[in-house]
């Protein structure tokens, strides 16, 4: 499927669908035995600000405990913020939670919103009543989603008997039957096999392109990010460490490029200016570059007989891991 420009048929209005300013959430944690309990305040999210324009797909990344889920819970109205303001679809989530719920779709990868003992079809029918979707709209959307997500074979199966991938597609359908403006996904592909992941990613791209649905997702799967997101935000220790497009994220990280050299015969580790040998395996050597690759390649070729050369860009996974590893002082906030 070709990458269509976001929401071509739906020009994005000027007001962003998500507008977060100075958002913070702290928790009071009690520790120690009874009577000698000490209380301390943990800042799960501190001074986070961003906007998401209508029709975008934005990835929200961060290590476990960085504040991803806490942010998502404040955006959906599950948690009240301790400080700052949040507007989603023009509403204030914590105060107008039920009204907001009718306008957004939320999928938690780790837990289902479907009714365990009911056939999938019945769970989806119930969703129609809870969201007050007219019967004709429901029937048409269910037909569309059934075809796109290939639900046909298991519509009559009780949810408890579905595989993880089938359940996930069912949950996605339940979150979309009321045609939300914004889809919030919390780790939508966690634990899924390659085929299921791919089905879901292609579907999300199509949904965004053809229906103009804004998608905000948290994930640990960088495959999701590379396939889906033009823009990523990285949160670490409760603060936004990065907000920009993927290319800028690659550039921002000092993760070095690697030159893989296949020599004609095994030799001692290569020493040339602007490169450092990090591994040797028979005739193959890995050189970490901190200078212009052309100069290094020329220098290596001048001294050794080279059978093959490969230049490897750092993949996004390493870039993000590197971003997480940077000490808090250096990390600061990079905006691209």
């Amino acid at each position: 499927m070709p990458d269509l420009p976001a929401a071509a048929a739906h020009p994005a209005p000027a007001d962003p669908i998500v507008d977060v300013r100075g958002l913070g959430r702290s928790f009071t944690v009690s520790e120690g035995p009874f009577l000698r309990r000490t209380r301390r305040t943990v800042h799960a999210v501190a001074d986070v600000g961003f906007t998401v324009p209508r029709g975008a797909i934005v990835g929200y990344l961060g290590p476990n405990g960085a504040g991803k889920s806490t942010t998502m819970k404040m955006l959906t109205g599950i948690l009240s913020p301790s400080s700052g303001t949040v507007r989603v679809a023009g509403l204030e989530p914590a105060r107008q939670r039920t009204r907001l719920a009718a306008r957004i779709g939320v999928v938690f990868g780790q837990r289902t919103t479907l009714w365990w003992d009911l056939p999938l079809r019945d769970s989806l029918a119930l969703t129609r009543h809870l969201y007050h979707v007219p019967a004709t709209d429901h029937a048409r959307r269910l037909a569309e989603l059934t075809e796109l997500l290939e639900l046909g074979p298991f519509l009559r199966t009780p949810v408890r008997q579905l595989s993880l991938g089938q359940r996930m597609r069912g949950d996605l359908t339940a979150a979309l039957l009321h045609d939300p403006e914004l889809l919030v996904l919390d780790e939508p592909t966690i634990g899924l096999d390659v085929v299921s992941k791919s089905t879901i990613r292609e579907f999300l791209l199509k949904l965004n392109a053809e229906r103009g649905t804004t998608i905000l997702l948290t994930t640990h799967d960088l495959g999701d990010v590379e396939r889906l997101c033009r823009r990523v935000m990285v949160i670490d220790h409760g603060r936004l460490a990065f907000d920009g497009d993927i290319a800028a994220l690659r550039d921002s990280a000092p993760a070095p490029r690697t030159l893989v050299v296949d020599l004609a015969a095994p030799t001692a580790p290569i020493t040339v200016a602007g490169a450092r040998c990090v591994a040797v395996e028979g005739p193959r050597q890995w050189l970490e570059l901190d200078a212009n690759p052309a100069a290094v390649i020329a220098a290596v070729a001048a001294e050794h007989e080279v059978a093959d050369l490969t230049l490897r860009e750092p993949d996004i996974e390493e870039v993000v891991a590197d971003l997480y590893r940077r000490p808090a002082g250096e990390r600061g906030r990079i905006t691209a």
Partner: peptide, 9 residues
């Protein structure tokens, strides 16, 4: 949490 994201009390 899943109850809170549905448009029903």
């Amino acid at each position: 949490d899943t109850m809170l994201v549905r448009p029903v009390s």
